[in-house]
Design a binder for these strands. Structure first.
Lengths: 146, 146
DNA sequence: TTTAATTCGGACGCCAAAGGTCCTATTTGC
DNA sequence: GCAAATAGGACCTTTGGCGTCCGAATTAAA
């Protein structure tokens, strides 16, 4: 089924939601409410997003998160890398630690690279902006949770 | 890391190996030896490959497996589907069973489809033949395991 | 100065799914 | 009839995803 992890999925959701809060910082509880995700999970996702440089964080009271880059400038591939590491369909990658001991027998040894590259390219062409509904959650009025 | 299952990987390996045995049928023990994979695993993989129509099977003594289609005619995407089901990066696909209960909140609801399509296309353009080393394991002389 | 709100970093435990093995039934050549 | 194979499951083990929680550090406001 070629699934990517839920954390990655959540990451995209949170980023999209964050696009609606504009320049002001949004805290975890607020984002949890507006996305429908559990607070601890949202917190975890945001830590990863901050480390990867997608969001800026402000610590302390009245702190929170804010987009560091526009969604149009965030390729989906980068988000996936942040949450799951390098995009590789199999463990059999050049420079893989250990590698399969039957490399001498394996007829596809070292041949997955073009495949990985193709998938990586496809996921780089798509940005998070492409995944976010254009008019979803844009703050037109004061939020209800004040 | 966007990993696909090991079974799928093995499937490609076995198919590639099977291309070297030509028109004659090869049994599980032989294929296990020449691929370096455990017998039970090879057996399992071949059952899936047979059900999907990639290989033809002959039952009974002197039976075994033979390629049903040329590797050039087997897109990688089809192999993945055979082992893992439909190619979808998230559970959030149109027509998914149940679906996320927070669909009303989710800003990316129904927007993964283009992504899935892009990946699917990339994996369809590549055939198993592209992954198999051109001259790996072509039987130029009688096999050593007779 | 104290208090409350908030992020940071890591540790921990649960659970589902993958992975691998094995068993029995069926088929077929010798 | 016997041996060699595939067919189709069932079963068990293990891995890693996933969700949660805790203590520490930071900062605004009272």
């Amino acid at each position: 089924m070629l699934r990517l992890s839920k954390l990655t999925d959540y990451g995209v959701v949170v980023l999209s939601r964050l696009a609606g809060t504009g320049a002001r910082v949004a805290a975890v509880p607020e984002l949890a409410l507006t996305t429908g995700l559990p607070e601890p999970t949202v917190a975890k996702v945001l830590k990863t997003l901050a480390q990867a440089g997608f969001v800026d964080s402000t610590r302390g009271a009245r702190g929170g998160y804010r987009l560091a880059r526009a969604l149009e400038d965030i390729p989906l591939a980068e988000v996936i890398v942040a949450f799951e590491g390098p995009i590789a369909l199999t463990a059999c990658v050049d420079g893989a630690t250990g590698g399969c001991e039957s490399a001498g027998l394996c007829p596809v040894h070292g041949r997955w690279d073009p495949v990985n590259r193709a998938v990586r390219e496809a996921l780089t062409r798509i940005t998070v902006a492409d995944l976010a509904s254009p008019n979803a959650f844009v703050e037109t009025r004061a939020p209800a949770y004040t």
